[in-house]
Amino acid sequence: MLINTVLMFLRELLPLFLLLATLLVWHRNHWRRFILLFSLPAILMLTLFSSNMLWISEQLDGFGLELLYSLLYTGCFALLCVAAAKRNAAMLLSAFACACLLSINGSNLLLYIWLPTQGNTDPSALLLGMALGVGIGSSIAVLWYYLLTELKQWRMLSYRLLLSLLGVRQLMMASALLIQSDWLPAGPQLWQTEQWLPEQSELGFFLQALLGYEATPVLSQGLIYIAGLGLLLWCSRNLKNNIRSAQ
């Protein structure tokens, strides 16, 4: 129970924390406004989805939840692309991108915590697992924030690349859900790295949260990944100037 809770929280929170930390580096001079802009739609969407989870999951031949999640992941990617390209509404769009991700991960966590089966389990193990998961995730995010602050100062290209990887990770998650619900053809498997780096290991979790690591990706995912990465890198070509003008 303990280990499952820790892994569940890490899997859900780490991508959100990494994205938040990355975007806070961008909007560090107006971080209070950014948090406010992110929190309001995030709470609204989270409440809406979690209260209608059952109804959503029954739609579209039982794939309603998967399709909604893939839509939110794609929306998150698209918002990041536009935010990186446009100077004016960058903060608002970034905040909405984070809100999209929070609505997915938050819904999953609420579902996990309030599952009927949880009633028979030891609540202290659940609480300890939550504390460990949140502690590890937030600690990585803090270190990630300071690392990116240094990178942004000296190596803007590295910051752009990491932001693009985080963005394309959301597209990768969307593609996995679409393949799962047969809305996207899978194609042949590209490689198999499960033996060397399992997705369920700590490093696997981190890489999955950072760049959408898949131990067994398929062709369509590979193509989407390359196209998405290229698009976000292109959109963020003037990111340095955008950040300067924002500060």
Binding site: L132, G135, I136, S138, S139, I140, V142, L143, Y146
Partner: peptide, 12 residues
């Protein structure tokens, strides 16, 4: 912040 994050991460 960094020391707390490091301690938390490594201890956890």
């Amino acid at each position: 912040t960094v020391l707390i994050a490091l301690f938390t991460l490594i201890s956890f």
